[in-house]
Design a protein around this nucleic acid. Sequence first.
RNA 1: GGCCUGGUAGCCAAGUGGUAAGGCAGGGGUCUGCAAAACCCCUAUACGCGGGUUCGAUUCCCACCCAGGCCU
Length: 317
Amino acid sequence: MNTNRPKLIVILGPTASGKSTLAIQLAKKFNGYILSADSRQVYRGMDIGTAKVTGRKTRVAGFPAIVSQGVHHFLIDIKNPDQTWTLADFQKAVKRITTRLRKHPSFSKKIPFLVGGTGLYISSIVENWDLPKGAPDLARRKRLEKRTLDSLVKELKRKDPASAALLDLQNKRRVVRALEYVLSTGHSFLKNQQKRRPEFDILQLGLAVPDAELTRAMTRRVRSMIRLGLVREAKRLPKKYGWDSPAMSGIGYTEIRSYLKGTLSLDDAAQQIVTHTRQYAKRQMTWFKRDTSIQWFQRTGEAKTIVQKFFSTQKTQ
RNA sequence: GGCCUGGUAGCCAAGUGGUAAGGCAGGGGUCUGCAAAACCCCUAUACGCGGGUUCGAUUCCCACCCAGGCCU
């Protein structure tokens, strides 16, 4: 029935699982381009620490892109580290790019591959979340953040009891966001949280890597990051953008910061990066687990087979 | 050789004459505009060894072992 919906292939998995490499292979084989679903790789200059793909920079239909091994990657290097980039920006960008490229002479036949580890971002596309309208009220948010959690919770319970009942009231960041929304729009926060029918005909592939192997890959990766100049990168960026810019809170940078301050040896910093990366991978998996439509695979070959089937089946769903 | 300080769970680290905080690590989880973020829950019969004093010692005393520092 929905054969008219454009296809979208999602490739997800924990960090360091080898998504990027695999995605390039698949994109080559099936004539695709890549949309990065990674909240950190959007930032320019954060190359080593985010294990970004490298390649020639270009533009397609006005969108910046990186061409790596002949495959176009979008949503990488589009913001400076001190700029904000949010879920809504991501969602909008994905829709805009896919829509535009569908009409582009040399991209109209290409299949978008949404590749990354930011589960929130992926879900917003796969489940087609209807995000609350209106831009965040940053000034108000700032004011709210100064108040105690307790007073925020009380006010939220008064103004929007329905949302308060469902929110994690111990998480200040969430309470602030909800209250910010309620106060600036006058509407209930949760009432606007809806899912719609996906705009795409979607196949979700999950790259499963055994724990021990993943840890080994992370260790290797951190070593190579340091060899490539992670310290230099972590020294250079804050000079320009400051340590508290949104982008610098990521794994790899905070630990190197400790090293630069002298609190940690470089070896210990590296060790910590691995530990924190593992914890992050755990959180990613916790997120992915709740989506039962993800098809997990371990070998590239399996992925190719699944994709092939996806293309040949005249779907009913 | 002498003196000093210390030896508490995998690591760091409080503390007490009545069997011991916390942090990290570990395990599980939450998630609709900061998500590599933020938050929640769960975890260990850990007080160097041996004596002594005491109703009772991880806490006091003695000896020993170990580590670090100082001295000759």
